[in-house]
Design a protein around this nucleic acid. Structure first.
Lengths: 196, 196
DNA sequence: TTGTCGGCCGATCGCCGACAA
DNA sequence: TTGTCGGCGATCGGCCGACAA
């Protein structure tokens, strides 16, 4: 959930389960319909109760989105659910208002360079980022390194070799990085976000 | 459309645009809903008019499916659209009955072997298949070959080098085959279908 | 501090006929 | 007739420090 909000950005707010919302079917259909529906006398807006919210990400490109399950209702905005209605639709209110992101430290975002995405080498980790977000290395060694295990937004684990080497010294992700780049179809200009 | 029906198989039948159909929302929701909807008093069946049919294929694995756009209606099965209704929903009947596949020659299907899907080599084309479906080669040459351009079910073009070589002689697809295998995520036991 | 490159070597790709099922 | 293999060049992957922006 923390990663989802970090990806969605600070401007993204969501209703909570049980809230009353206004659903705009015309705008929704414009995006998902395979056919023009404009002459079907659809109401411009429908008052709905939010039954469920799921924070999801596109399986193909990791774009984040939220899936809301809503039920049309005749209630007025501000109305509370009574016990009978709660039993019928099987949902409790989580509270009023909206969900927003919490700020987090130990997080960094980097726009990928041509070198980062090339098959020629690995990923240059900005110094501050490595020190903030990665477990510390033993700098007494000549080429200190460790294996990092990171979970992506789907919960899938990725392993990276993190090494501190070169002249001048710098942090790099080597083994495991290129397979990540190719599986995620990342190109120069895309961004990666790490959360400790 | 011919390729779609060849992939769907001879048992697949579809209604036509404008037909009246019976929609079963409960069974549909069991497949697509993220939440149990069984206590919402949904009607077991809804009579609908078919507004549109699209023959499509899954972008990921080329599985074929059809997308039907349907509109609830109070008409009875067997009813015809009148002019007023045609104007309102903007659809004409294509005729009664169902759409079925047509049989086609110059077509072949092969289950892929371990050698076909390995990165070690190309694709062994069964002799009959090559003679039926591919443009004839100039067998006077020592190693006759040509470039084949094939469109997949999305209309995307793939290029293959078709060569007749080896002792004994056999038809092979070489250059271009392995990229096709990897992009389509094909493994031993999967099948490919070629249509001239 | 970090983006790009040349160097280098090992792994893999992919085309070929041999061979046998 | 065709599935699998050994062979072999060519290409690519990927780790390294040099160097400069």
């Amino acid at each position: 959930m923390e990663l989802w909000h970090a990806c969605a950005g600070p401007l993204t707010t969501l209703p909570k389960k049980g809230n009353l919302v206004v659903y705009f079917p015309q705008g929704h259909l414009e995006q998902v319909a395979s056919r023009d529906m404009s002459n079907f006398d659809l109401p411009p807006q429908i008052f709905c109760r939010v039954l469920d919210i799921q924070l999801l990400a596109n399986r193909e490109n990791d774009d984040v989105y939220a899936q809301l399950t809503v039920l049309p209702t005749t209630e007025l905005i501000g109305a509370k659910l009574d016990d009978k209605e709660i039993e019928r639709i099987g949902v409790h209110e989580d509270g009023d208002g909206v969900t927003t992101a919490k700020s987090t430290s130990h997080m960094f975002c980097k726009t990928l360079t041509a070198s980062d995405t090339s098959t020629h080498g690995g990923f240059s980790v900005p110094r501050r980022a490595a020190e903030d977000c990665f477990p510390p290395l033993d700098y007494k060694e000549q080429r200190p390194s460790q294996e990092l295990i990171a979970k992506d937004i789907h919960g899938i684990e990725w392993k990276f070799r993190h090494i501190y080497r070169g002249q001048p010294r710098r942090h790099l992700l080597t083994t495991g990085w290129s397979i990540f780049i190719s599986q995620k179809n990342l190109v120069s200009g895309d961004a990666v976000l790490f959360l400790r």
